[in-house]
C-alpha cells in the first residue's frame, strides 16, 4: 500500500456521507448525464425551434432576428412541402412494416426453434451489419441496385422509392429484430401450446395471443426503424434517384436559409412526437 495515510480516511468519510444521504448519491450520478442532455440535446432543440421563427434577409442572406411565423406557415401550407413530408412518413411506415414482417419469423425461429447453441450465433449474425459503416452499406446497395447491368440485372427496381425502402429496411432491421426477439423469448413455456389446447388454430392463436403479447416489442422496435427512416437523407440521395425526403430539404436549404431549414426540421419533430405519444399507450416505451 503506497497511498498516503490521509486518503483512506477521506475516502471512507466520503463513502459514509454518500451512504447516509441517498439524495446526494443520486444527484452525483445523474448530474453528468443531465448536463450532457441539456447542453447537447435540449438546448439545440430549443435553438432550432427559435430559429424557425426568424427570417433571412433575401439580399444579404443574413438572419434577421425578428419574430415571424412566415417560414412555419410557409412550410405548413405549401402543398409541395407537405407532399414531401407525406412521402417521408410513407417511407418510414413502409420500412417499419417491412422490418416487422421480416423480424417476426426470424425472431420466432431464433427464440423458440433454434437450439441454445445456435442461438447466440444467430444473434451475432443479426448484429453483423451494424459492424460496417453506414456509408459503406448504402454505397454497397447503390452498386447492387444499379439499374440494368448491375449485380441484380433486370431484377433491380432501379433507383427510386422501392430502392430507398429496401436499403433502409436492410439498415434498420437489427433494431427491430432485437426487441422482437426479446419479446418472443418471454413467450417460452406453454403459451403457444395453451392456445392450441384451448381450441385456437394457428392463425387465431397468432392474432389473439402472439401479436398482442408482442405488440409492445414491435412498437419498441418501430421507434427505432421509424425515427431513423424519418430523419434519413443520405440513403435517398444515393439510391432514391431524383426523389427527396424531408432531410434532403433541410440539407439543401440550411446553408442558404437557416430559418427556413429549421422550420422544415420542425415537421419530422412533430411527426415523431405524435408517434411516440401514440406508442406510449402500448407500454412499449418501458421496453426500450
Amino acid at each position: 500500500m503506497t497511498s498516503t495515510p490521509a486518503s483512506p480516511t477521506l475516502t471512507r468519510r466520503l463513502q459514509a456521507v454518500l451512504h447516509r444521504r441517498p439524495g446526494l448519491r443520486l444527484t452525483g450520478l445523474l448530474t453528468p448525464a443531465l448536463v450532457w442532455l441539456g447542453l447537447f440535446y435540449i438546448a439545440p432543440l430549443a435553438l432550432l425551434l427559435a430559429t424557425a421563427f426568424f427570417r433571412t434577409n433575401s439580399f444579404t442572406g443574413r438572419i434577421v432576428y425578428d419574430f415571424s411565423t412566415d417560414n412555419v406557415v410557409d412550410v405548413l401550407t405549401t402543398p409541395e412541402y407537405l407532399l414531401t413530408a407525406g412521402r417521408t412518413v410513407g417511407v418510414a411506415v413502409g420500412v417499419t412494416l417491412l422490418c416487422a414482417l421480416l423480424a417476426l419469423p426470424l425472431a420466432t425461429y431464433m427464440a423458440l426453434v433454434a437450439g441454445p447453441r445456435s442461438r447466440p450465433v444467430l444473434l451475432a449474425l443479426v448484429l453483423t451489419p451494424l459492424w460496417a459503416s453506414y456509408l459503406v452499406k448504402v454505397y454497397a446497395w447503390r452498386v447492387l441496385l444499379v439499374p440494368e447491368g448491375g449485380l441484380l440485372g433486370a431484377a433491380s427496381p432501379g433507383y427510386g422509392w422501392t430502392a430507398v425502402v429496401l436499403t433502409l429496411t436492410y439498415l434498420w432491421l437489427p433494431y427491430m429484430v432485437l426487441p422482437v426477439y426479446a419479446g418472443i423469448s418471454s413467450m417460452r413455456g406453454s403459451f403457444l401450446e395453451a392456445t392450441a389446447d384451448l381450441g385456437a388454430r394457428p392463425w387465431t392463436s397468432f392474432r389473439t395471443v402472439v401479436l398482442p403479447m408482442l405488440a409492445p416489442a414491435i412498437a419498441a422496435g418501430s421507434v427505432f426503424t421509424f425515427s431513423l427512416s424519418l430523419g434519413d437523407y443520405i440513403t435517398v440521395q444515393l439510391v432514391g434517384g431524383t426523389h427527396q425526403m424531408l432531410g434532403n430539404l433541410v440539407y439543401s436549404t440550411f446553408s442558404v436559409d437557416l430559418p427556413f431549414a429549421a422550420a422544415v426540421a420542425v415537421l419530422p419533430l412533430l411527426v415523431m412526437a405524435a408517434y411516440l405519444l401514440t406508442i406510449r399507450r402500448t407500454g412499449a416505451l418501458s421496453r426500450l
Binding site: 406453454s190 403459451f191 401450446e193 395453451a194 392450441a196 389446447d197 398482442p212
Partner: peptide, 20 residues
C-alpha cells in the same frame, strides 16, 4: 389430430396464463 381439434384441455405446470 392437432391439439385444437381435440375436446381436451390442459392445466399446464407453468399455468400459461396470457399476461396481456
Amino acid at each position: 389430430a392437432p391439439p385444437f381439434d381435440r375436446d381436451v384441455h390442459t392445466v399446464f405446470q407453468d399455468y400459461a396464463l396470457f399476461p396481456h
